[in-house]
Amino acid sequence: MRLAFILSEIGSGLRRNLSMVVSVILVTFVSLTFVGAAGMLQMQINQMKGYWYDKVQVAIFLCSDGSTAPSCASGPVTPEQQQGLNALLESPSVAQYINDFQFESRDEAYKHFKDQFSNSPIVDSVTPDQLPASFRINMKDPQKYQIISETFSSQPGVETVIDQRQLLERLFSVMNGASLVAVGIAGVMIVCAILLIATTIRLSAFSRRRETGIMRLVGASKTVIQLPFILEGVIAAVIGAALASGTLWAVAQFFLGDYMSRQYPDTAFISSGQTLILAPALLILGGSLAGISSLLTLRRYLRV
């Protein structure tokens, strides 16, 4: 009975305050979309880092069947060449610059590739023998990349030496900057959302002061009096959060998935499914912001 009563009170409150409720929905929608966009940028950065990015700085790719580099003219790397490279990495002249190194076989390379590009159409057209084996090196000082490059580029069986970090670091700093901007806009919008929710709840409490006055006089509990107002704000904010989650999903599905991954086939993009991880966070964030701001407003403007 009491639940049915509270629900009908919420319904009438939402109807009576429709334009305000719609603006709360829109403001939380926009603010949480920016929060989610920042989250998506970070996820995209992680996706592009792939398996090795945080572990090593330099990769020495070995010649494979499909290598076209002049240094691979004699065909794929032989086991002897590979052992020679291993010995060179362990020799004191090189070892002093590196923390450690790992060997990535073709099968491992294929596995890591599949993980990183799981969302891209390219994954189906690649086979293990198209991917080179490599040594992955964790440098003591990443600035000493030149030394490794000079030592290994001319070694037999080496196709190329790449400083992976340098390739991606500038892009990541741009994306991190964009994340910060998104977080900044989100912050301002969240302040707007909180103020708007507070105003909406205040108006709602004012327009229903006759009901709440009677409820108080006949001994309704604080919960019964306040809950419809709080839930009114929370429901509006949760709808906004759901719209934001849907928007992020659509961006990943249609913009990244369909358009961007066709434009940049060699870049790994996050999948639309991954963005759904953000949805619960946005729903909880929106709901709790609305709940807290409603509660604080009611403490000032609704006598119980």
């Binding site: 009975m1 009491r2 009563f5 006949v218 309704a220 509990s221 019964v224």
Partner: peptide
């Protein structure tokens, strides 16, 4: 009925 509803009396 309002006075009874808000204190949780049954229908």
């Amino acid at each position: 009925a309002f006075a009874m509803q808000v204190i949780g009396k049954s229908r």
